[in-house]
């Protein structure tokens, strides 16, 4: 039982680590009172997903550069996940930018970045 668990950990450690990272990001989103740190949590969460895509495409072969001759399955890494991650990173950056813009506006209006203070200020109005 323990052997099997260790075996999985040894061969699949990347996934285990990534899901820890994923959980950390999600926990930050939920539990952190600071809005900027919440957004960093979202970024961490997304980065974990990007790394997950990279990890699953990894093979002990070579980089996905195709130079005309055919390769067998498993010889080169699949290029598709890498393209996906590049696109997803771009999307993530756009989201972060919009989020930060919103946070700046909230700070200008309420003078705070903390969610609990924000809740109090809004309740008073």
């Amino acid at each position: 039982m323990i052997d099997a668990a260790l075996d999985i950990l040894a061969s699949r450690y990347a996934y285990a680590l990534l899901f820890v990272l994923l959980g950390t990001g999600l926990y930050m989103v939920i539990a952190n009172e600071n809005l900027v740190k919440k957004l960093i949590g979202v970024n961490l969460f997304q980065s974990a997903i990007f790394l997950f895509f990279i990890a699953m495409a990894y093979v002990d072969g070579r980089a996905p550069i195709i130079e005309g001759k055919s390769h067998g399955v498993g010889e080169i890494a699949s290029p598709l996940p890498q393209v996906i991650v590049l696109t997803a990173i771009v999307v993530g950056i756009a989201l972060t930018a919009v989020g930060l813009a919103l946070i700046i506006r909230i700070y200008a209006e309420y003078g705070t970045l903390r969610e609990d203070t924000l809740r109090e200020v809004r309740a008073d109005e």
């Binding site: 989103v29 979202v42 969460f45 919103l102 946070i103 506006r105 909230i106």
Partner: peptide, 13 residues
């Protein structure tokens, strides 16, 4: 802005 940020965080997740 607060509503949009809330939507942004939840929507992204």
């Amino acid at each position: 802005a607060v509503a949009a940020l809330k939507y942004l965080i939840l929507g992204t997740v």
